[in-house]
Write a protein that binds this DNA or RNA. Structure first.
Lengths: 341, 341
DNA sequence: TATACTTATGATATCGTTATCATATATTAT
DNA sequence: ATAATATATGATAACGATATCATAAGTATA
C-alpha cells in the first residue's frame, strides 16, 4: 500500500546525499548538527523504518537465531524458547523457531532453511543421534551452533544437557529402596540421544543391583501423548507387568496417566510412577507425581551463554564446551512401597 | 571458517557468466544442457547454499512470517504456533516467534523489529485493546496482518477468534442450572480483548437472570500462574465467597487449582469450577475439569488461510474478514449442584 | 533467400544499506 | 603564513542474488 521509504527518499527531502542521511540514521561519522536534525525530522515525518535485510547484506549479520526443535508444544521446549529468548533479546537477537515433528528430514530441511536465511546462531535439539552431518555442516559454515537436551556422541560442538543416566539411576535407586524389583521404562525413539542415555542409566541400575532385566519391561514408542498412551496400555496389559514405571519425558507421562486411568490402575497402589520432566500440574493431580526435575533456567542460561560468546566475539573459539547439569528427584506421592509377592 | 560460496564463484569455476549460473540455479531462462550440468556439478562440489537474504533484496519477499504472542509457554499459543506452522511451511514459509510477556512496549518493539526484518506476514495476539497504532501501521505498510484470539474493536483487519461472550454465557447457564447464584470470575488483564468479551458475557448472564452482581466476585489479576494463584486466594478468602467460579484461561485455572488445594477447598463440593481452554491433563486430575474448549485446529486453519491469501495473491484484498468461531462446553466433574443455603 | 522466431549467453542495473574514498573547508599547531 | 589536523560532505563501490537488455547464432516459416 504505502510505498517503502528509503534512506535516499529522506536524503532527497532533507537536501543531503544519501551517504549523509545514512550517517545520521546510523549514528556514525561526521555530520553537522543542522543536517542531522533535518534528516531526523524528515525520517520521523515520513515514517522511515530501517531495512534490516539490506543492512544484513552489508555487514553479514542478521541478528537472528534459529531454534530447531522437535515439538514446540512440549512444555520443556516451549520453556526453553521462552527463557533463551529472554536472554538473547537484550542483545537484539530475534528467534526463528523451526518445528520438525521429530522428523529427520524436516530437521535437515530446517537447518538448511535457517542457514540459507543466514541466522547468526542455531540452537538444535537433534532428533537423531546417528544422522548429524547437517549439524556438522552448519557448524563448519561458521554459524554459532549449540546443541541442547540431546547430544550425539563424538560431536565436537557446544552443547548443554543434563546427566540423564545418573538422573535415571537415582530414580531407580528410589524405587529399589521401596522394594521394587520389576521396573518398567517407557520412552519414545532411541534415536533421540537423551533417551539413549536415560535407557543406559536404566540398564546400569539393574546391573548394579545384579538383577536381570526382562526386555518386555522396556517399551519404546512414538513421541506423542497418544503413542505414550498406547505404549502404556501394552505395558500394563502384560501378565508380567512392572510394579513401577519410569517415563522418559512428560508426553510419555501424560500418556501413561491416561492409560492407567482408563485401565483402572491406581497409582501408586497398583503401580508406582516416576516421571522425567517437571510440570506445574504434576503437583495438582491425585496422586502428585514424583519427578526428575531438570534445571530449566540453568539450561537456558548455558545455551544463551555459549551461543552469545560465539555470536558476539569476533575471534574464533576453538575450544567447545559440553555442559552437563544435574537433575533433582522431587519425591511426591506417586511412588509407594512395593507389595510383597 | 569456510568462505561463503557465491554464484559468481561457481560461474567462474564452471566457465560461464554469473548470469548463466544464476539461470541454472534459479531454474529459469534458457541454458544449454552442457552448461547446466557443469554449473550444477560445480555447485554440488563446492557446497553452494543459496543466500535467502540476497534473494529477498531482489524480489522483496522473505518467506517469513512473524508471530507476536504474549507467552509461548501458554499451551494455547504453543498449539497455535505448531498448527499454523504446519499449514504455512508447505508454502515454504518459516516462522519467527516474538514473545512479549504480555507487555505492550515489548509488543510494539516486536512488531517494529519484525517489520524491519521484512516479514511477509504478521500474526498478532495483541495484549492491549486500547493501544494498537503499531498494528494499524503494520497493516498499512502492506504486510499481511492477521489478529488471533484477541481482536480490538473497530480494527478493520483480518482476525480469528471465538465467540467469547457466548462461551461464558453458556458456561454460566450450566452453573445457574445447577443452582449457583454467586459465581466468581477470575481473569488476567482486561486490556486483553478476549478477557473483556468474556467478562461481558459474564455480566450479561447475570443480567439475564435478573441477578445483581457483587463486584467482589470479579477478580482481575496478572497473567502468570502465580498471579492466578494469588487472585484465587483473595477470592476464596472472602467471607462472601462464590459457590462456583469461571476462569478466563488455563493459567488462571492452574493458579486456582493450586490455591484451592493449598486452602483445602474441595472441588466441586466446596466450589464448582469451569475453565476456559482445554488441556490434556484436565481430564486426568481429580475431579476432571469442566471446560470451555476452543476449536484449536479451526482457529489455526482460519489464521493460515487469511494470511496465505494475502501473502500469495498479488491483487490487494480490500475486504477484511473477522472470523468468529464457536466454542463447546465439555462437562466433567468439577461442577456440582449448589448447596442450598 | 529474406524474415521471423527460438535458443543461448554475457553485460549491466537493481534491491536498500553501509563503508570507503576523495575532496573541501574550517580549525589548530608551528 | 604554512603545515597539519579535524570536520563535513558527496560519489561510488560493495553485499549476493535476480532480471532486463542487447547481441548472436541457430532454426523454422514464407
Amino acid at each position: 500500500m504505502k510505498p517503502r521509504i528509503t534512506v535516499r527518499d529522506i536524503a532527497k527531502q532533507a537536501g543531503v546525499s544519501h551517504a549523509t542521511a545514512s550517517r545520521v540514521l546510523g549514528g556514525y561519522g561526521y555530520v553537522s548538527e543542522e543536517k542531522r536534525e533535518a534528516v531526523l525530522e524528515k525520517a520521523r515525518q515520513m515514517g522511515y523504518r530501517p531495512h534490516a535485510i539490506a543492512r544484513s547484506m552489508v555487514h553479514g549479520k542478521t541478528k537472528t537465531v534459529g531454534f530447531v526443535v522437535g515439538d514446540i508444544e512440549n512444555p520443556f521446549f516451549s520453556n526453553l524458547v521462552m527463557n533463551i529468548n529472554a536472554l538473547i533479546s537484550p542483545q537484539a537477537y530475534t528467534m526463528m523457531v523451526y518445528t520438525t515433528n521429530e522428523n529427520l528430514d524436516e530437521e535437515i530441511h530446517g537447518v538448511e532453511t535457517l542457514l540459507s536465511k543466514q541466522v547468526d546462531g542455531l540452537i538444535i535439539a537433534p532428533c537423531s543421534s546417528q544422522n548429524y552431518s547437517h549439524i556438522v555442516e552448519a557448524h563448519n559454515s561458521g554459524t554459532a551452533v549449540v546443541l541442547v537436551d540431546r547430544v550425539p556422541d563424538s560431536l565436537n560442538i557446544d552443547s548443554v544437557r543434563v546427566d540423564n543416566a545418573l538422573a535415571i539411576q537415582n530414580a531407580m535407586q528410589h524405587l529399589f529402596d521401596l522394594g521394587h524389583r520389576k521396573i518398567g521404562f517407557l520412552s519414545d525413539s532411541l534415536d533421540i540421544a537423551s533417551n539413549r542415555e536415560r535407557l543406559k542409566g536404566f540398564r546400569e541400575a539393574y546391573q548394579e543391583q545384579s538383577l536381570s532385566l526382562n526386555p518386555e519391561l522396556i517399551k519404546i514408542t512414538g513421541h506423542t501423548v497418544l503413542d505414550g498412551y498406547r505404549g502404556s496400555v501394552s505395558l500394563l496389559s502384560q501378565s508380567n507387568r512392572p510394579s513401577a514405571i519410569i517415563t522418559a519425558n512428560n508426553f510419555m507421562t501424560t500418556g501413561f496417566l491416561l492409560a492407567a486411568k482408563d485401565m483402572l490402575f491406581r497409582i501408586p497402589e497398583a503401580i508406582s510412577l516416576i516421571s522425567f520432566d517437571e510440570l506445574d500440574w504434576y503437583k495438582l493431580i491425585d496422586p502428585p507425581i514424583t519427578t526428575i526435575a531438570q534445571p530449566l533456567k540453568r539450561i537456558s542460561q548455558e545455551v544463551a551463554r555459549l551461543l552469545l560468546r560465539r555470536m558476539l566475539e569476533n575471534e574464533n573459539i576453538a575450544q567447545f564446551e559440553d555442559v552437563v547439569l544435574k537433575t533433582s528427584l522431587v519425591t511426591r506421592k506417586s511412588t509407594a512401597e512395593a507389595k510383597q509377592p
